[in-house]
């Protein structure tokens, strides 16, 4: 019988060894806030209820905010935060908004009156223009936070979804099919040459 005991003991030990996770060092709040901030999408939209990503990060580090309040970060972002903080994943809190495809702002330049209100609203300096001059968005810098949309007195800013290009296209997750052979024959219907 002692062989069984040896085995059980060995298995238990190994199980512990394999699952061994280095105990999280207690990090100080500011450092933790930095680490959290590094994972946030930096859209600076304020949907989380804080005036930007860093304040939200600080709030999480202090334990004042939950990890599921950032819609631009979405599910992936929550996963990352959960991993960093060693917490459980929870779905996005829809009170703060829903995850949507990335969009960039677009100014209808014919209508723009050059009031500079949008420039003042843009948290990431993605709008150029001067008083009474036409304004325009530098699309590659725009985070899609939508903060410039409400201030515009003539409603000339719209949000356009970013189209996928050949360079940013991603391969799909391979469909996972375990089916009887008969049904897969029809699965490869392709454009005929």
């Amino acid at each position: 019988m002692n062989a069984i005991l040896i085995m059980a003991l060995g298995a238990a030990l190994l199980g512990v060894a394999l699952r061994y996770v280095p105990v999280k060092r207690k990090v100080d709040e500011a450092v933790l806030a930095e680490q959290i901030d590094a994972l946030l999408p930096q859209t600076q939209c304020g949907q989380c209820g804080y005036p930007g990503c860093k304040p939200y990060a600080t709030a999480i580090a202090k334990g004042e905010a939950d990890i599921n309040q950032c819609p631009p970060g979405g599910t992936d972002g929550i996963h990352k935060l959960a991993e960093l903080l060693g917490r459980k994943f929870k779905p996005l809190n829809t009170e703060h908004g829903v995850e949507k495809p990335k969009a960039v702002a677009f100014i209808d330049e014919a209508v723009c009156i050059g009031c500079t209100l949008c420039i003042q609203a843009c948290p990431v300096d993605a709008i150029v223009g001067a008083a009474k001059q036409m304004h325009t968005i530098i699309a590659p810098l725009c985070t899609g936070c939508e903060l410039c949309v409400p201030p515009c007195p003539v409603d000339c800013i719209s949000m356009l979804p970013v189209a996928v290009s050949v360079d940013t296209w991603k391969w799909q997750y391979p469909v996972f099919e375990i089916k009887p052979a008969a049904t897969t024959a029809t699965a490869t219907k392709q454009q005929s040459a």
């Binding site: 062989a3 069984i4 085995m7 060995g10 298995a11 190994l14 199980g15 060894a17 394999l18």
Partner: peptide, 15 residues
């Protein structure tokens, strides 16, 4: 002993 030995080493295999 081979059965026990195999099971023990099975648990070490990932490591």
């Amino acid at each position: 002993g081979i059965a026990l030995a195999t099971l023990l080493m099975n648990s070490c295999a990932p490591l």
